[in-house]
Amino acid sequence: MATKASRSAARLMMAPAVILLLGWMLVPLTMTLWFSFRKFLPMRGGDLGWAGFDNYARFVTSSSFWPAVYTTLLIVGGVLVITVMLGVLLALLLDQPIWGQGVVRILVIAPFFVMPTVSALVWKNMFMDPVNGLFAHLFKFFGAEPVVWLTDAALPSIIMIVSWQWLPFATLILLTAIQSLDSEQLEAAEMDGAPSLKRFWFIILPHLSRAITVVILIQTIFLLSIFAEIFVTTQGAFDTRTLTYLIFQRITDAQNIGLGSAGGIYAIILANIVAIFLMRIVGKNLDA
């Protein structure tokens, strides 16, 4: 796009897409902002006028707020630890020359293509059902009492389901990072007297550090907003109510749109802080 004419023509042609995207984002954002300052109770009188910062104050002082934050952190942290650790191991494994490499790699990526609702339902009914689930059968086979997963171990169960969904993503990013490692570096380390465990610790892991950061940040943004997995399994019961789920309950169960919107704005701010870090790191990667 060298000339002035071609530049303005390009702008003109990009305009519809940009306007559509902006509208798509700005309209709901503005509405959320607007409602967050209103006392809006649809079943109890509708829009009852200006509320100032009442909704913001009420949202954070509610007794469910801190437990929800805690649950959110547990889920995000738990899934991150599991996906990064297993992701590194799987990536190392998939990097080895094996027969049927292409098929295996596609199979590993497959869970990522399953919709969250579907995968949660599959886990809930096929694996974790205390009577008919595979886990229950497995436990019974060994003579143990089946675990009622989504009641007795609700949070770990959800962490397990979400980890299963996000493991492919982590594996994929980490695998490409491992493949970009110069094999001469590993050979040099081998000659320098580093056995395979030390080669992993001193060469491979530092090489992966950036990829791991990117995985952590991208996953954090998406994990902060997981919803379907909770909705179809515990519905927020048994200490599985995350911040996102709390916002949902404020709006649908409590029918308080103002309060829910204020929570939504908190979530937006939180996600944006992570996003800023992400963009800086990804940007640095592209520069280097």
Binding site: D182, E184, Q185, E187, A188, A189, M191, F202, I203, P206, H207, S209
Partner: peptide, 12 residues
């Protein structure tokens, strides 16, 4: 001891 074509230094 070996010196490689790409030098194979540890970048970090």
């Amino acid at each position: 001891a070996m010196v490689f074509q790409s030098y194979a230094l540890y970048p970090h």
